[in-house]
Design a protein around this nucleic acid. Structure first.
Length: 492
RNA sequence: GGGCGCGUAGCUCAGAGGUAGAGCAGCGGACUUUUAAUCCGUUGGUCCUGGGUUCGACUCCCAGCGCGCUCACCA
């Protein structure tokens, strides 16, 4: 791989060797800039007026040779600044270095005065020029850049060099997480870190990755969710906690799924899901305003405004509104399986799914979810699919649970936490029964978690937010891979 | 896993059963305010891999690999 050198690469390695032969280091140890390109732009008038020399460093991106003078742009972390290098101004030895050794893609340092060219571009007139790092591999061309999706992800470093919009997306992602963290801290939440390696896999319904600890000779699961550990902290008296970190699910890849993805989970003692819904709304609105400076989002053809109060619909209301045929049939969580199946069949929908809630979920995901531009809270999920959630006092089939939908995607999920140890134990038993009848995503029994609940967990409510999906919304990205720096790829 | 599509120079892309093409990049030359700089000249290829058909395959066929879209899965 590293030896597949073509003529261009061989020539550039030869230039690096030639530099060494002249006593120049093609990979210098350090070089201190005084200004970023953005600093020069921000202070342009003063810098031009007092002729203060500036030191800037960056990657040579476009070169225009004109005999005994050249223009090029240096690209640094903040943007680009044009450099003018000319024989009768630049130190003679440095001018020679530029002529003999500099290539597009090299990282260079320049010191000089700031001026404006006659075409009006802010420019540094180089008094000195140094190559700080020799680049030997040619960059993609300047017009079309790099568009090949596979190369963009496999060689994200090249993508970041030549596609400024890509960098911008990851800046937005970082600011988004920072805004979330700041807001939660200001509201008294404590950021914690819980294990990524779990002896018992729980907190969600998903297939796990399995690994092995040699010294203990035990299998461990990469976590599919931090939920059960965070609620142990609630038992321990940590009343407001959150964790922003990776979850791992051993499932297929899609535009909305990467096997490792980032989740915000938070827990608040003494709250129920209604309060958590309000917090979720604040969180999304505040973060959007903080990062984008507005509340309106463009997501493909959709316009999403997180400014006004979020709409709220129960699960079955949403099904009825967005799939009117289902309303006519009238689904109910309390229907026996055969009844639900025949109702679905009357809609022309045949399924092998073995539960009432499973069939209704399929209809919801297929017919309703894509239409939920939102922001909209869907509430009152079936208890049978929410084994860690508290049920509604007045409806034994429904859990106090909500999900937030935006852009046709599930963004967040929250509920009132089940804290009755006996009921939790029984729900684990039901999950184990489902597991032994073939549902390999059902929860495992977690005896210690039940023991923790036996100590008494204050009433509490929790929230999970898909950070990658939120980043997709804030950056108008339609694949999760656009907001994950190094998405999973098959090895080359 | 199924279906559809793609894989040609460093990059972006044409092409076609009979010598492999362009632009940009690169290399050589002219040019001291250019910015897709311009002008002259020029190098560069495992046409994804392996089989097959054929006098001849980059092209057609089969298989594989990688990628994309999509369906399934992901409540």
């Amino acid at each position: 791989m590293l030896r597949d050198h073509n003529e261009i690469i061989r020539n550039r390695y030869a230039k690096a060797d030639a530099m060494r032969a002249e006593g120049l280091n093609p990979y210098v140890n350090a070089w201190q800039p005084t200004h970023a390109s953005s600093d020069i732009r921000a202070n342009a008038e003063a810098l031009i007026a007092d002729k203060t020399p500036v030191r800037v460093a960056g990657r040579i991106m476009t070169v225009r040779h004109m005999g005994k003078a050249s223009f090029f742009h240096l690209q640094d972390g903040a943007g680009r600044i044009q450099i003018y290098i000319k024989r009768d101004v630049t130190r003679a030895a440095d001018y020679e270095v530029f002529k003999k050794f500099a290539d597009m893609g090299d990282i260079a340092g320049v010191c000089g005065e700031v001026f404006v060219t006659k075409t009006g571009e802010l420019t540094v007139l180089a008094q000195t020029f140094e190559i700080l790092t020799k680049s030997v591999r040619p960059l993609p061309e300047k017009w079309h850049g790099l568009t090949d999706v596979e190369t963009r992800f496999r060689q994200r470093y090249v993508d970041l060099i030549v596609n400024p919009a890509v960098r911008e997306k990851f800046v937005i992602r970082s600011r988004m997480i920072s805004a979330i963290r700041t807001m939660l801290e200001s509201r008294g939440y404590l950021e914690v870190e819980t294990p990524m390696m779990h002896p018992i896999c729980g907190g969600a319904a998903a297939r796990p990755f399995v690994t092995h600890h040699n010294a203990l000779d035990i299998d461990l699961y990469l976590r599919i969710a931090p939920e059960l550990y965070l609620k142990r902290l609630t038992v321990g008296g940590m009343e407001k906690t959150f964790e922003i970190n990776r979850n791992f699910r051993n499932e297929g890849l899609s535009a909305r799924h990467n096997p490792e993805f980032t989740m915000l989970e938070l827990y608040t003692a003494y709250w129920d899901y209604r309060s958590t819904m309000e917090l979720t709304e604040d969180l999304v609105r505040h973060t959007t305003r903080e990062v984008l400076g507005r509340t309106e989002l463009t997501f493909g053809p959709r316009r999403i405004d997180v400014g006004p109060p979020f709409e709220r619909l129960t699960y079955l209301e949403a099904l009825a509104r967005y799939y009117p045929a289902a309303a006519a049939v009238g689904f109910s969580w309390s229907d026996p399986l055969e009844v639900t199946r025949s109702k679905a069949a009357s809609l022309g929908y045949k399924t092998e799914t073995a539960t009432t809630h499973g069939i209704i979920s399929e209809l919801f995901e297929h017919h309703v979810e894509p239409q939920l531009t939102g922001p909209v809270f869907i509430t009152e999920f079936p208890k049978a699919s929410s084994p860690l959630a508290k049920s509604k006092p007045d409806d034994p089939f429904v859990a106090e649970r909500f999900e937030l939908y935006m852009g046709g995607m599930e963004i967040a999920n929250g509920y009132s936490e089940l804290n009755d140890p006996r009921e939790q134990y029984e729900r684990f038993l039901e999950q184990m029964a489902a597991r032994s009848s073939g549902d390999d995503e059902a929860h495992q029994m977690d005896e210690d978690y039940v023991r923790a609940l036996e100590c008494g967990m204050a009433p509490a409510s929790g929230l999970g937010v898909g950070i990658d999906r939120l980043a997709m919304l804030l950056t108008d990205s339609h694949s999760i891979r656009e907001v994950i720096l190094f998405p999973l790829m098959k090895p080359e």
